[in-house]
Amino acid sequence: MTDSTWTLTAADGELQVLTGVGGPAAKMGHRLTIAMASWRADVTWRGSKPIAAELVVDVDSLQVLKGEGGVTPLSGPEKVVVRSNALNAMDVKKYPQIRFSADDIAKTDTGYRLTGTVEIHGKSRPQSVDLEVDDHGGTWVMTAEVPVAQTEFGVKPYSLLMGTMKVADEVMVKFIARHPK
């Protein structure tokens, strides 16, 4: 039996990071929706079973879509500053990509559990992702939400006002992609 590969990119879906705000002055900050505009996922199939998957994200493709909450709405110039701060925190020049490689894929009631390793900021950690797969007629729709603690990967969450307002350590990574049958 020969293997085949599905390749998915940002043209097939979205990869977003949702942040929270912490600290005593949290009400002043914005909960951000960030898009990763350049990514590629390769899924290797053996017959009708997925046997491996890899997601590679270009950190420099980070785009700040919106900010909710805060004292004032998040302006265009503020989005530029937020992007710059995030890229500095991620040390994008030294660590230009984020990777998730799954070498164990198990069928679940709603899709698949992908178990492997995620590498962020030069640090690798084991990671499981529950990928929900829905049949939409001629298209498969795949979704996942995964919490990630930045400090587990050596990323220091951005803070202001001597730490009284900061990006929450845990962010939520949301993925959705479509693939024709």
Rank of each mutant, 00 (worst) to 15 (best):
G70Y: 08
S101T: 14
P50Q: 09
R113H: 09
Y112R: 10
Y95R: 12
T108P: 05
A89F: 05
M90D: 01
R31K: 11
R113E: 13
H121L: 06
I34W: 06
K107R: 14
R113K: 14
L74W: 09
L74K: 13
V118P: 08
P96I: 04
A52V: 03
K27R: 12
A41T: 12
A89D: 01
S48G: 06
G29R: 02
V82M: 02
A106V: 11
A52G: 09
N85Y: 05
D109N: 13
D60M: 04
D104R: 15
S84Q: 15
K79N: 03
V81N: 12
T44W: 13
A102G: 09
E54L: 12
A41V: 14
R99E: 04
G69L: 11
D42V: 08
F100W: 11
V59T: 13
R31G: 03
G116D: 05
K49V: 09
K107E: 15
E54W: 09
T108Y: 02
G67H: 12
G67D: 05
W39K: 07
G69Q: 08
G70E: 03
P77F: 10
V82E: 01
K66V: 00
V64T: 00
D60R: 14
D42Y: 04
G76I: 00
F100S: 03
G70D: 05
P50C: 03
R99H: 10
Q63N: 04
E68G: 11
D109R: 15
N88Q: 13
L62N: 00
K79E: 02
E78G: 06
D91G: 02
P96A: 03
G69D: 10
P77W: 02
V57E: 02
I105N: 09
D58M: 00
D103Q: 14
I120D: 08
W39M: 07
I120Y: 13
Y112F: 14
E54K: 15
F100C: 06
V92W: 06
K49E: 14
P50D: 01
L114S: 00
Q97Y: 10
N85L: 13
T44K: 14
L114G: 05
A37D: 12
E68L: 12
R31W: 00
G70C: 07
R99F: 08
E119G: 04
T72R: 15
D60N: 08
P50Y: 07
P50I: 01
E78S: 10
R40V: 11
G29H: 04
F100Y: 12
L62P: 01
A41G: 02
L74V: 04
